[in-house]
Design a binder for these strands. Structure first.
Lengths: 213, 213, 213, 213
DNA sequence: GATGAATGAGCGTTCATTCAT
DNA sequence: AATGAATGAACGCTCATTCAT
């Protein structure tokens, strides 16, 4: 809930602030990030910052929300497509490919997502971040729900748990890709996407159908 | 590398310090934890603490090492057993059952493991924590290696990546169990273990064999 | 490089801070001085101090710079005068007389200069203090260079060494004057000045001319 | 005034302690030196150290005293010689040559001497260091006194001041030599000695005789 | 609307010294 | 004669936040 004042700011200034904040939060997590340094990097006055945002957490929310809107666009299109029903995993692979490209271009966004996880989950879910958090979960959750409807995704475990598991491996992949950046980048990106989707599919396929690839 | 002096302390005092530290590190991570508060909670003087441990990181290492030694016992026995070859996934399930029981009894230990991940991986791997970190990875890695030898675990992706993925879902399960503690505890624990092992098996089974359960 | 904020402060507050710092640094040197005590003596909040200055060293620089600017005025005028050529040692004596008067009035300034010497010379020369340090050396160095041009100062040893030697005896004189303050003050100040200049002249005169006084 | 207990220690242990202390004090000065680190470097127990020495200052005194005894030997021989009367400055040059050789071999000793100067002079003079301090001054003072008797040293300024001035330039030379170590070492050491003695002579010669070299 | 001066609790760490054994 | 556990004040510095203007 950034104050309306912030929305009214010149877009360039908005961008400057949000970029500085994204960098810092991505690099050091929420607790580790220094509000002072964000302010300095953004070139804004301290008072102004507290005029635009309630506090550090409020800024964090705003930043995370903006970031998640990018995702929204990415995944949103898929949800409107009917291809999800006819060829769920094929469509999913397409999305994953785009997502992978996006992640390589915007590693800060991924880091931001990770910093979300470091916070007390209870607080995140019910606090001002809950909305964003739910959104993130929602997209992949909604896609998986569509998969369930199409019979391509298991329904023998809670959807929420399934989503959590997928996020877990997703992050593990991210970490591994980052750690093995050079081999990864010089390797075949397409192979990476397929490897990732394969693991997702293994986890999410209905019981008895894991082999059908 | 806690100083030898600490080992010589009265066990109760040792325990008091270690417990306070474990709580704090588990709750707030390494960076977030306040050494001052650990000291206060433990009821020790500041000087004494720096007499026992080099610094915050040294205390953290000690705490983590103690915690990991419990794991070592748990997993170590399995590695000595030959059952891993004859019935890999069955044996793995037994271990997982014990591990789950342990995790329910000592949730701080799990949180501690998570706090390890928050640190700069490069630093962790080569610093004083490297030993512990390697151990953790090693146990599950060594078990999976045995599984590969037995033909029960895939070898088409790097072992290190496989381990990372399993840790990822493992943590996701942990989080989910914690968040749904009440439903979980009152539910059938055995079902949970089976669910977990199933996902592990889905991920780690050789290609073309995912169905064989 | 004190932050601009400090310059904007009410002069009285500026003075209070600078005085407290000067006293402390003069009395205990850079390392020995307690920033906390300076803060307390100045009656400022800790945060404020770190708002005005980057750190302890930054405050030290500021204090030293202010002090050196007094010197600059003193010696600067002499460098503009042509009397240095026509009557080098006579002019030098005039300057020394003014300098002596100043030193008696502001003994802290002398102590401050001494504290500069206690720091790692390499660090001082290239760090933020370099400018000030160079200035100090420069003034007496430039005067001596003029003396060389006028044939009143030896050029058979490096100018830098000559300056160092003069500073060495200068400080020895300072120390002695301070230690024998009472005898000194009640004695004939003029005699002191002449004694000092005589020693400077003995050291700096060209070989074979030491006697010409 | 190190306790008698220290004297009774095995010589090796005495040496180990004194060496560790000399290094630390020489490197960081009295205030800057860490008693803890000296103790650790010496491999002695903390209690033992406080059993041998009253406190940090007591150890410092002991170290300085030992160091000064080396000087004593150096200069003592000269005082017994009658050559001081017949050829004062020639004899002085011989001593200076030996002193220079010693300084190059034992730079810590020089550093130790410098650390003495950093202390509050009043405290040094009347405190337990007074004796040592006086000794140092005394040797060069006594030599100069002999020079006065022989008519080779001026008596128109207080002997104490003369000694202070000579120490001042001596230290300036030291500093300069250290800073220009490479040029200095590869240069002609004999020339350095003569340069130094020349400056001493310029300062100390009786008025009207400075030229006689 | 917006500024930036000011706060003070808190951080991890080092220190010389004491004292029961 | 010797140990080493224990102390707690002090260190330089960062922090998110407030508020008079």
């Amino acid at each position: 809930m950034p104050r309306a004042r912030f929305e009214r700011l010149e877009p360039e200034k908005q961008a400057r602030i949000l970029e500085a904040a994204t960098e810092e939060f991505a690099a050091r997590g929420f607790e580790g990030a220094s509000y002072n340094q964000i302010i300095e990097k953004a070139g804004v006055s301290k008072g102004a910052m507290y005029y635009y945002f309630d506090d550090k957490m409020d800024l964090f929310c705003t930043v995370v929300k903006r970031a998640s809107s990018h995702m929204t666009e990415l995944w949103g299109a898929a949800l409107d497509s009917e291809a999800l029903e006819s060829d769920f995993w094929g469509t999913f692979e397409d999305i994953a490919r785009k997502q992978a490209a996006f992640a390589f271009e915007h590693p800060e966004m991924m880091a931001l997502g990770k910093s979300l996880m470091e916070l007390d989950p209870a607080l995140v879910r019910q606090g001002p971040l809950g909305e964003v958090y739910a959104l993130t979960r929602t997209w992949i959750g909604r896609i998986m729900a569509r998969g369930q409807a199409a019979g391509a995704v298991r329904d023998d475990i809670p959807l929420e748990l399934l989503v959590a598991l997928l996020q877990g491996v997703g992050e593990a992949f991210d970490r591994w890709f980052v750690a093995h950046f050079e081999e990864t980048m010089s390797g075949d990106p397409e192979a990476l996407v397929q490897m990732t989707v394969d693991v997702f599919r293994r986890i999410a396929s209905p019981a008895g159908q894991e082999v059908r690839r």
